[in-house]
Design a protein around this nucleic acid. Structure first.
Lengths: 146, 146
DNA sequence: TATTGTTATACTCTATAACTATA
DNA sequence: TATAGTTATAGAGTATAACAATA
């Protein structure tokens, strides 16, 4: 009657992503001593993957505003998980890099959270698991689009 | 070198979901007069799809805690978008239902936000679009798992 | 005694606007 | 004058703990 007995695909994607993200956020810091938010973990992960970057690049990558990234970087620096250094050629910019201490912590966290998500993925039948796995690169592209 | 040049699938899913959700949240209320948050829209949408429900059922569905749902329901009631009524057989429970005013608003919002997401989906090549579409039911199941 | 919902409180995440410093 | 980053401020979203009412 209302036209959404079957929700349209885009709405379905939106709803699923919102719920999943909420659960991922609340799932954090289960057994690991130091608390690390979802975004903080994402930033450390990005630094691990891509090497030192400027706060601006990090902000673009995570799609947050620059002041938000300043905050995140600040907190991580306080905890000794990343270091701020000068940019070689541009005095305005800053180079943020992950510390060694962060390496171990990221691995620990990733294991815990990945386990949580993996546990849920395992509850799907293998066809569904494969569909999700197949769509991952596309989802990643979608998340990174301008 | 660090073992995550290729991020593992589960981490990739987590990262993409987090970024997408952030963007979906910030994308809200673009041209529509009344402001409606992502979760509020999700609740109204759920009521549209499933008919009147108790706050507890809504909380379970959206995977938020009961007090959070109380808040959301409160705000929506204040704006005349839903109504609280007595439960027919259990005096403790409450039946929440969408008002007619909400119907039009939901459609309007859905159009705006769906358009945003659709615009981004269109930037992917059609193979990627199909992969995402194919994975949607599985993602929905994943979001709904206990 | 268990369950449903609410109230009270606090914290995290993120944004916008204004400011500083360098290019 | 434009750009990178930061500071200051505010608001949205959600949680946990304690409480009330009904089963």
């Amino acid at each position: 009657m209302n036209g959404s007995a079957i929700t349209d695909p885009v709405s379905s994607l939106r709803a699923s992503v919102l719920v999943l993200a909420r659960r991922l956020r609340n799932q954090q810091g289960v057994g690991v001593g130091d608390e690390l938010s979802a975004t903080e973990l994402a930033v450390l992960g990005r630094l691990s993957r891509c090497g030192p970057m400027t706060p601006g690049q990090l902000a673009k990558g995570e799609h947050v505003q620059p002041p938000s990234m300043t905050r995140i970087v600040e907190r991580l620096e306080t905890r000794g998980l990343l270091a701020r250094g000068p940019h070689p050629t541009d005095g305005r910019q800053v180079l943020v890099s992950r510390t060694e201490a962060a390496g171990a912590l990221v691995m620990e966290y990733r294991a815990v959270r990945t386990a949580w998500l993996a546990r849920h993925l395992e509850q799907l039948d293998s066809a569904d698991q494969q569909l999700i796995a197949a769509a991952l690169p596309a989802l990643q592209k979608l998340a990174e689009l301008a």
